[in-house]
């Protein structure tokens, strides 16, 4: 079991002919993900790696190949349009890897998705990887392992770091999910935690937050009220100076709020241990998780 994906997940990759789209589509296929179609307007009728049909529109991919999920690698100026195209064509899950999408575009996208009952992951995220089931995005398959731990993170490479350590400690994962570092994102910590809590295969989970916003605080309150499974957290950005955007559009301490200290306190108050270093996550999990 995993969250948000299963064996019936059939993927269309939007931007499959670009450098990154092609590189990662190759890896998704190699992992066994059902990449059933690609979409690049103007390249309809061609094939990706001689096997995956490419269409001009997502609707064709849905109608002809039964795609129900989209993974998006298109450049920022086309990303919001690509998300809405996938939603309108009938994809129920859309994963947008693209970094640098204007926030105002995402504000317009969100109600469009809600009206169509579509889940978005990202943008500006690494996607998700459910070991043994599917890889949607760019998480490196070499570091994951099937197992009972769920992982949700606002970061990309920091997620890999933690997954790597979990796997090294023999703690496999149900799903590794990167929700993205932008201010307006489709799936947030709360959505992921609700899903992990409901997923019988997930026995414990890890949450990797960072400075900016209050999603970690909201998640802490939810966990305190509803979650019995063991949870360990990490917050990046203790040394970040206020008022500076730390790479991610959403990673900024503004007006004195959104600090790592505030988030750590909220999590601790909810009884959730917060690791001081990434390498302390696994020991914390082993300590509180009575298997």
């Amino acid at each position: 079991m995993a969250i948000f994906v299963d064996k019936d997940t059939r993927v269309v990759v939007q931007g499959i002919t670009g450098r990154d789209g092609a590189f990662h589509s190759h890896d998704m296929l190699a992992y066994g993900t059902k990449v059933v179609a690609g979409c690049t307007p103007g390249r309809g009728g061609q094939k990706f790696e001689d096997k995956v049909p490419i269409f001009d529109t997502v609707r064709e991919a849905v109608v002809q190949e039964g795609a129900n999920t989209s993974v998006i690698f298109v450049p920022p100026f086309g990303a919001a349009g690509a998300i809405m195209e996938a939603a309108d064509a009938g994809c129920k899950l859309v994963v947008c890897i693209t970094e640098g999408v204007p926030t105002v575009d995402m504000v317009k996208v969100m109600p469009y998705l809600k009206e169509r009952g579509v889940r978005l992951i990202g943008p500006n995220c690494p996607g998700l990887l459910a070991p043994g089931i599917a890889k949607l995005g760019i998480l490196p398959a070499s570091i994951v392992k099937e197992g009972p731990v769920g992982l949700v993170s606002r970061s990309g490479t920091l997620t890999y770091e933690v997954v790597f350590q979990l796997t090294a400690a023999g703690l496999g994962q149900t799903t590794c999910l990167g929700i993205g570092g932008d201010p307006v994102i489709g799936t947030n910590f709360l959505d992921a935690i609700e899903a992990f809590n409901a997923d019988p295969a997930t026995e414990a989970f890890v949450m990797i937050g960072e400075i900016g916003g209050d999603a970690e605080e909201k998640a802490a309150a939810y966990i305190k009220a509803h979650v019995k499974k063991p949870v360990v957290a990490f917050i990046a950005g203790q040394t970040a100076p206020p008022g500076k955007r730390m790479g991610h559009a959403g990673a900024i301490v503004s007006g004195g709020s959104g600090t790592a200290a505030e988030k750590t306190k909220a999590l601790n108050d909810a009884g959730i241990p917060v690791a001081e270093r990434p390498m302390d996550i696994v020991p914390h999990l082993q300590r509180i998780w009575k298997r």
Binding site: D20, S155, T157, E210, A236, G237, T239, H248, A251
Partner: peptide
């Protein structure tokens, strides 16, 4: 590479008693 890992690296430098000179994310691709 990556903003989250870059922040965590700075935090770790501080944890071990050092001082980071900068935050720098060389980004994807």
């Amino acid at each position: 590479n990556g903003a989250g890992l870059a922040m965590a690296t700075m935090d770790l430098v501080k944890y071990y008693g050092g001082k980071p000179a900068n935050f720098l994310d060389i980004g994807g691709s």
